[in-house]
């Protein structure tokens, strides 16, 4: 078997199917997209080459930058709020008794397997300004001034969508963290206990450092998932009010399909690919480069 793994031809044969699919469906489509990004194109006809005009128009457009900012806000909330919350949930889950843990495990997965449409509609109902759950609770608590039109207010619409999106994957991420925790040898905790370390100290000194592989994996998954955020925005606000809650991908979709401007749509797509490549490079450069063996 080892001999087989050392044979480069064998490696190539094994890798070929995946390579083939990746080339046809990922690499190849980028080339016509680059071409269209230099055209005035309505999706059906090339109405002439326009040089860098599409890129200049996109970069000069405030909506593109707002869409980037919105996407960035969602990424930040995911990285600095949702992932830490998932980690805390995992740590708590590890301390629970088995029957309660089983319940938590099942309920953690449930939102992730539900359709985005169901989740989005549920949150639309929660955020509804007149009879929604959130405002009803706020009014019942006498906090009428905080009862807002969450999805129609420019100050709250993006975080409101982000909460719905991040909530959906909070439990699943917690479960993945929990799986990582279970892989850490018990002996480390026993030694820490003898040294007098409590739950918080052993979590900070042992659990979190040893979860760096899982953390990196979830970080990449979460950031790229947030970058590609589309469905929740489409269902919950359609990018509105106006264009205030558009993400980059939604803006791309709007330019290409709603405004029938595939030239600009493709220019946005190319810029987005570059953004994602830079982000992936940064994650690989700065996050958990050394593998810890235990």
């Amino acid at each position: 078997m080892n001999k087989l793994y050392g044979n480069k031809l064998a490696i190539f044969i094994f890798a070929f199917p995946a390579l083939l699919l990746f080339t046809v469906f990922v690499i190849y489509p980028i080339f016509p997209e680059v071409l269209i990004s230099f055209q005035k194109n309505d999706g059906f006809r090339n109405m002439g080459y326009v040089g860098l005009k599409n890129y200049i128009d996109v970069l000069k457009n405030d909506t593109f930058w707002r869409a980037n900012l919105n996407t960035f806000v969602i990424v930040l909330l995911s990285t600095f709020v949702a992932l830490p919350v998932s980690l805390i949930l995992a740590l708590v889950m590890d301390r629970l008794s088995e029957p309660i843990r089983r319940f938590f495990k099942a309920s953690s997965v449930l939102p992730a397997v539900l359709s985005v449409t169901v989740i989005a509609q549920m949150w639309i109902a929660i955020y509804e300004p007149m009879w929604g759950l959130l405002n009803s609770i706020l009014r019942a608590l006498g906090l009428d001034s905080l009862a807002l039109a969450w999805l129609a207010d420019s100050r709250t619409v993006v975080p409101a969508i982000a909460v719905a999106f991040l909530w959906q994957y909070l439990g699943l991420n917690a479960l993945l963290f929990y799986t990582g925790i279970k892989a850490i040898p018990k002996t480390y905790y026993e030694a820490a206990l003898i040294d007098g370390a409590g739950f918080i100290k052993s979590s900070i000194k042992i659990t979190i450092p040893l979860l760096q592989d899982v953390t990196k994996y979830l970080l990449v998954l979460s950031i790229l998932g947030c970058m590609a955020q589309f469905a929740h925005v489409r269902i919950m606000t359609a990018g509105g009010p106006g264009d205030i809650s558009r993400t980059v991908i939604y803006h791309l979709y709007y330019r290409a399909f709603s405004a029938s401007d595939f030239g600009q749509g493709c220019a946005i797509a190319i810029l987005f690919v570059i953004e994602c490549l830079v982000l992936t490079f940064l994650i690989n450069k700065f996050v958990a480069r050394e593998k810890i063996e235990f």
Partner: peptide
């Protein structure tokens, strides 16, 4: 360039050419 890299480059090129003809 080692043999494996040459093989991969060749395969990718063939796939892309086939895709190009198929799609255009």
């Amino acid at each position: 360039m080692n043999r494996l890299s040459k093989l991969i480059v060749l395969a990718v090129t063939i796939v892309m050419l086939i895709s190009l003809f198929a799609c255009t």
